[in-house]
Design a protein around this nucleic acid. Structure first.
Lengths: 164, 164
DNA sequence: TATTGTTATACTCTATAACTATA
DNA sequence: TATAGTTATAGAGTATAACAATA
């Protein structure tokens, strides 16, 4: 069962468009990152660790809206690949400070390049005006909503791409 | 744990933006459709049935990229709500023709209005130029990709919105 | 033999609850 | 008592495999 072009009743639905655009990007992201041995969510963790110092597992989880129990397995995986290291915080021995290893920093750089390249390809069918517009529009659509009632499980997962 | 504004490292990532825009829309879609007793995927099924005649379960499933085993439960649910009816095709007794009931047709109309209203609200933060641009851009980004290797499980689920 | 619908089963992903060690 | 990390468990959602009826 190969994928057909979107049937007419659906191609006018914003939900259909957003979902399938996202799925396509996730697919491309997975393909682009596979050679680097990480997925989009792991890359996001590396990027967050690179951007801030001395983050605990819980802080990283909060930043990415990932559950703390999920974060355990994520950090396990990254530690197995020797891209990050856990160490106890001397100030609060309950906390695990997660740090990039030199190898992790290198991997981050390489994978970020692949991600940017992937994103460029993804946006290639658009004119530069359209590309700029869609990014700007998505920024305001993705921003935090009216004070959500439920915590909501919106996370990061297999996707990522800096925008120029 | 309430949702914070997107941290800087993430707000420049297309994957993050697409995913969270989609999640927000799915949330709004669920809220808008709840009073009508259906979800976005069920609405999509009703819309497809309304647009074409004499569709079998498998054909509906194919149109929406939904697995045929998933479609069974979906049609079960819609039949329980008396919005659709199954009947054996006289031409091929293996096939279940799925038909809208009058009640289903009415529900479709009401829910479509709610969905359009929801979508209007969702796009409200954008200028009309931006809104038009983002829709046009998403159309080309969501279109079928290079002949996919794997069938891919991209489906429809909780979202939907006609675009003017 | 292939196709449609169906059921039962397995798998993936994530959340929930309970435990420990620290504070 | 509350918090960070961990583990085990459960749940939602979907795919896979097998089967009956029909072609």
């Amino acid at each position: 069962m190969t994928r057909d072009a979107p049937p007419e009743v659906l191609s006018s639905r914003l939900g259909y468009l957003l979902k399938h655009a996202y799925l396509r990007l996730a697919e491309e992201s997975a393909r682009a990152l596979a050679p680097h041995g990480i997925d989009g969510r792991e890359l996001a963790v590396l990027a967050v660790l690179n951007a801030h110092d001395e983050l605990s597992q819980l802080e990283v989880a909060g930043t990415l809206s990932i559950d703390r129990t999920t974060m355990v397995a994520l950090v396990d995986a990254l530690e197995d690949k020797q891209l990050v290291e856990r160490r106890r915080s001397p100030h609060d021995r309950r906390k695990n400070i997660v740090q990039l290893t030199p190898s992790g920093r290198q991997r981050l750089q390489d994978a970020e390049l692949a991600r940017q390249e992937m994103e460029r390809r993804f946006l290639a069918p658009l004119s530069s005006t359209e590309a700029a517009c869609v990014v700007r529009a998505l920024r305001s659509l993705a921003g935090d909503p009216t004070p959500a009632k439920k915590p909501d499980r919106g996370s990061v997962d297999a996707a990522g791409a800096t925008v120029r």
